[in-house]
C-alpha cells in the first residue's frame, strides 16, 4: 500500500540517514581509507550526524520517560520541522532578508515555534484522549498519526525531493596530507555548537527548574505527582512541545546539511533516533544524547569503511547486541520488577 506515495524510490530510502554524508571531503574518497585523516574526517561527520539524532532522540526518551509510550509520530514532527524550515527560508528569500545570521535565527525561531505547535496539537488530539487506555492503543494511535502526517505533507508539498541551495558554504581546513583535506565546514561547527548548547540548556531545564522537577516527578509516579499538585496534563503537553521544538532544530539542520528533504525522511530518522534512545537507556536524557552520537558514529564509520548499503543493518545489530548484554541500555537504570 502506498505509504511512500509515488515518490519514494526503492533501495535505501531517499535521503534518509547519511546518504549524503560525505558531501564534505567526498572528492577524496578514493584515498587510502586507513589513514588517520580519513578517520578524522569521518569522526567529524559522525559527530554532526550524531548530534542531529541526539536531538530527535531526546523527544522520544522524554515522552517515554513520562507516559511510557513510543511516540511514533515524532519522526514526522521532525520531518515537519524540516519542511517548515525550508519554507521559512524561501519566504525570507522572497522578503529579502539576505544577511545569513539573521535569516538563520529567524528560521530557527519560526521552525521551533510552529513545529512545537504541531507537537502540542498532536498530543492534544491523538494521545490525551487515550491517557489511561492500554499502552498498545496509544501506540496504534501514534502509528496512525504518523501515517496521517506523512500523507498530509505529501499531499500539501508533493512527493518529490526538495533541494535547497547551500546557505552556509565554506569551512575550515584542519590539515592536509597528500591532497586529502580534513574539512570542518562552518555548518558542521554551527550544528555541533548549537546541538551542544541546546542539550546543555535542556539539561539545565530538567535539573534546575520547577518545570524540570515536575517532569521528573511525573516520570517517577504520575498519580503521586498529581496528588501533590502538579498539573500532569500541562507537564505532558510541555514535554511534547519541548520535544517537538528540539526535533524542529534537528529538521532545520538536516535541511541545511544535506540540502534535500522529502516527506519520507521522518520514518528512518525516527526509528534511528528511537534506536539511539533505547541504546542510551530509554528515559535517560544523557543516554539519549550518547545514544544519538553513537548511532551517528556507527552509521558514518560503517558507511566509510564497509558497505553503505548495510549501514542501517549495522546500527540495528549494535542495538540488538547492546540489548542482549545490557537490556536497560547504556545509561538506563534497571527496571525494578514488581509483583
Amino acid at each position: 500500500m502506498g505509504w511512500r506515495g509515488g515518490g519514494g524510490a526503492c533501495g535505501g530510502g531517499p535521503a534518509g540517514g547519511g546518504m549524503r554524508l560525505r558531501r564534505v571531503g567526498s572528492r577524496n574518497k578514493r584515498v587510502d581509507q586507513r589513514n588517520l585523516e580519513y578517520f578524522l574526517q569521518q569522526l567529524i561527520n559522525g559527530l554532526t550526524l550524531g548530534g542531529i539524532y541526539g536531538l530527535i532522540a531526546i523527544g522520544y526518551t522524554m515522552v517515554y520517560g513520562i507516559i511510557g509510550m513510543i511516540n511514533f509520530a515524532h519522526g514526522e514532527i521532525y520531518m515537519i520541522g524540516a519542511f517548515i524550515a525550508l519554507i521559512a527560508f524561501l519566504v525570507l528569500g522572497l522578503v529579502g532578508v539576505t544577511w545569513v545570521p539573521l535569516a538563520l535565527l529567524i528560521v530557527l525561531v519560526v521552525a521551533m515555534v510552529l513545529t512545537a505547535f504541531y507537537g502540542w496539537v498532536l498530543e492534544r488530539v491523538a494521545y490525551r484522549p487515550l491517557r489511561g487506555a492500554p499502552r498498545l492503543s496509544a501506540l496504534i494511535s501514534a502509528i496512525g498519526m504518523s501515517i496521517f502526517l506523512q500523507n498530509y505533507v505529501q499531499l500539501a508539498q508533493g512527493a518529490r525531493v526538495k533541494p535547497l541551495a547551500p546557505v552556509i558554504p565554506g569551512g575550515f581546513s584542519l590539515l592536509e596530507v597528500d591532497g586529502f583535506i580534513v574539512q570542518l565546514s562552518y555548518l558542521q561547527v554551527i550544528i555541533i555548537v548549537l546541538t551542544t548548547a541546546l542539550m546543555a540548556g535542556f539539561s539545565l531545564i530538567i535539573n534546575r527548574t520547577s518545570l524540570g522537577r515536575a517532569q521528573r516527578a511525573c516520570a517517577q509516579d504520575m498519580k503521586m505527582a498529581s496528588l501533590i499538585g502538579i498539573d500532569v496534563d500541562r507537564t505532558i503537553s510541555t514535554t511534547f512541545v519541548i520535544g517537538a521544538a528540539l526535533a524542529a532544530v534537528a529538521g532545520m539542520m538536516v535541511t541545511l546539511y544535506y540540502g534535500v528533504i522529502d516527506f519520507y525522511i521522518g520514518f528512518l530518522a525516527g526509528i534511528k533516533a528511537f534506536t539511539a534512545a533505547v541504546l542510551g537507556g530509554i528515559g535517560s536524557l544523557p543516554g539519549a544524547m550518547l545514544g544519538g552520537v553513537l548511532i551517528g558514529l556507527i552509521e558514518v564509520f560503517w558507511s566509510a569503511y564497509f558497505t553503505i548499503e548495510y549501514k542501517d543493518v549495522a546500527a540495528f545489530s549494535i542495538l540488538v547486541l547492546v540489548l542482549i548484554f545490557r537490556p536497560t541500555g547504556l545509561l538506563g537504570r534497571p527496571e525494578v520488577e514488581k509483583v
Binding site: M1, G5, A126, L130, S141, G144, N151, Y152, L155
Partner: peptide
C-alpha cells in the same frame, strides 16, 4: 487515491480514541 492513506491514518486514530480497547 491520494487521500486514501490520509484517511487510513486518520481512521486508525479515530477508532482508537472512540474505542481504546478495540
Amino acid at each position: 487515491e491520494e487521500f486514501r492513506m490520509l484517511a487510513f491514518g486518520g481512521l486508525m486514530v479515530l477508532i482508537m480514541i472512540w474505542r481504546p480497547r478495540g
